[in-house]
Amino acid sequence: EQLTQNVLKSYHETCQLRAEDLQRRRWDTFSREEICAYQKKSMEEMWQRCAGRITEAIQHVVEFAKRLHGFMELCQNDQIVLLKAGAMEVVLVHMCRAFNADNRTVFFEGKYASAELFRSLGRAEDLIGSIFDFAQSLCALQCSEPEVAFLSALVLVNASRPWLQEPVKVSRLRRRLELGFQLLLRRTRREGLLDRLPPQGRLRALCSQHVEQLQALRRRHPPALLDAFPPLYRELFA
């Protein structure tokens, strides 16, 4: 019970956007002119913008992790390993809250945006499509806020990440989180959720696709391109 309260409190304290606000604004979409303006941006500028938004979201995930009971008791190597491997995955899970499955738009820079708004990302368009498909499938599960909170914690605290120094300690923490999640699901009669969650490999594949696209971008541009990206983004993905 204590652990559940801690997961929920950590999640609420570090949530970037409130669910009510996202819901209230879900039909506030970009106009045709605004979409065109985004499409006319250079590929470099659009990548930088997206990297900026991803980095902001990741900073909230780091704060979430810090508040999770047990996370800061892991050795520093393992804290870094878990965040490096899991932060982007958590951001993708959170995206289902900011996604309107009825018109396939996502909250981006103040309004809801369809995939076409990201056209200037060039070849990364496939990645956008995959991310939208993932958000759509997660939306179909209609997860509550407490469920998203636990899913975030469980994506992060994963004992099978490579390079962990104390995997046993991580798996002990994970086990406690799993128990808390099961109790919550039982209480809310949502046990079926566990069987309907997308396979873990899907998140991993999206994250590798993101890194591959970033590498392809770097091959086509001078190294100075990355100077304009947020330092935390470069540290995690470049």
Partner: peptide, 14 residues
């Protein structure tokens, strides 16, 4: 190697 992550983790509960 992960200077920024280290810093973020060490900065209290900001």
């Amino acid at each position: 190697k992960h200077r920024i992550l280290h810093k973020l983790l060490q900065n209290g509960n900001s």
